[in-house]
Design a protein around this nucleic acid. Structure first.
Lengths: 260, 260
DNA sequence: TGGAGCAATTTATCATGATCGATTCAAGGG
DNA sequence: CCCTTGAATCGATCATGATAAATTGCTCCA
């Protein structure tokens, strides 16, 4: 950039704040630009070459800036003709992974998770009563079929618990409150990871299976009837039961990066 | 969600799966390496030069990988002697910003936020009853002093609301449940941004000021006394009041990137 | 003549390596 | 005590080539 080809047209904002590195500043400039222009997911961003010209910076710098935006899930980029960078909606999976990183070094106990589930899941259930299509109710019932019979061994038990958590995650995704849906889904995700990677729920537990399943059957019924208060009460009991049965388990903490 | 079927196969070396770009693969390798070694925040990572040698890749590739990890808040990097890259704990601010990106294109109404606040904040208040030091209680009371008198104009009104939200954010940070604390803090952050950037709470509202303040005073008292149920009830009433007064406001949605 | 398949071209991003600049800390000299 | 100097390390640039994918266009057979 110390060359005659230097072209600093729209760099007035940068010169003032050399505090952060250039790629970071470029990334933020692009973010602001997207907001300003009101671009939507799928819209094209300028290509590498144009950005290089626009910012008057080297290719590597621009590429690092795009990596930042990619890592945050804000843009996706394709190679080839017609390729380039595009505005991308942050996926729920990526958001969960990024948030999971935050909790990596924090101490989060099973009981912490259940304190939240008890507060949130009944609210979610109540808000969905009478608002689900038959197709959606059918999807929930299909998940229930995955553990129609008690588990025979530890492996089967684990799979059933993952399926059971998918029941809650699915319910969450049906919700119209994106915030509530995400939080519930996030916690189901944590528990799924713990189940799969940390051998949580290692012991088959007939009592949890029987009562949990009957709760979920009753819940679907209440949702179909549109009985919000019943749905809330059932979910509350369901969560309270699960928490009680979890008390035996060790207070495992999060100790792994959730993958994108 | 991740299922056992898509568990990482033989990702021992990179050449096997060129599905994702090299920088991404390097970043994940470093993540895994950190987990494997059980490194803690502040621990040193290999320098650029060593990573170049270790992975046999070009400097730019390594740098892009580090940018990815920096964007996720997982590493920080310093120049100069003794510099290099270090494992970094993801800050709450960054986590809020990253999660905020997820909701950027989602429709989130004020009512959605309050549905969650009503469910969570009382729970937080109850869990903190009798668990705060006098210093912490003093910090809360200090915030209260910032709006001891009703606001005179719109600007003052806005500042008072930001301070009021900081009351909730501060309370959240005192909590021992990191999950609950983050969620409450996150929503206070959203409302703060809406207040500052979108002229929410534009009209001085004497009723909200009077009742809100008396609620918070009563809440501090209950917290000091260690009366969990009273704290829960007061916070619930406080949130319900706020939601009711919010119903007049338009159902503004999130439309801006929260800054890092 | 038509068109299905395949290879060459085109247009992007992706990756490399050499080189120079900027920043930081710490040790010595005024 | 300041403050210059120097070494270590990341930061940025440039030129060049590699790789990937959509398009073009050509061949060849029915």
């Amino acid at each position: 950039m110390r060359h005659p080809s230097e072209a600093p047209p729209s760099r007035g904002e940068f010169a003032a704040t050399p505090r952060r590195s250039r790629p970071v500043r470029v990334a933020e400039a692009i973010k602001d630009w997207v907001v300003e222009k009101g671009l939507k997911p799928g819209d094209r961003l300028p290509g590498e070459a144009e950005l290089i010209a626009r910012f008057g910076m080297a290719k590597g710098t621009i590429r690092e800036a795009m990596r930042i935006l990619q890592a945050q899930g804000l843009v996706t980029t394709k190679t080839g003709p017609g390729g380039g960078s595009f505005v991308g909606e942050v996926s729920a999976d990526r958001a969960r992974a990024l948030l999971g990183n935050y909790f990596f070094f924090k101490q989060v106990s099973i009981d912490d998770i259940y304190q939240l589930r008890i507060a949130l899941e009944p609210e979610l259930a109540a808000s969905l009563a009478g608002r689900l299509t038959e197709e959606q109710l059918g999807a929930l019932e299909a998940i229930l079929e995955l553990y129609a019979a008690p588990a025979a061994d530890a492996t089967e038990e684990r799979d059933q618990h993952v399926a059971s958590l998918r029941f809650h995650a699915t319910l969450a995704r049906f919700g119209s409150n994106a915030l509530l849906a995400f939080f519930v889904d996030f916690m189901a995700g944590i528990l799924t990871d713990l189940t799969v990677y940390q051998r949580l729920y290692a012991e088959p537990n007939l009592e949890l299976w029987r009562q949990g399943r009957s709760h979920q059957i009753a819940l679907i019924d209440a949702l179909r009837r549109g009985d919000a208060e019943a749905a809330r009460a059932i979910m509350h009991e369901h969560m309270t039961l699960a928490r009680r049965l979890m008390e035996d388990q060790e207070a495992v903490v999060m100790k792994r990066f959730m993958q994108d």
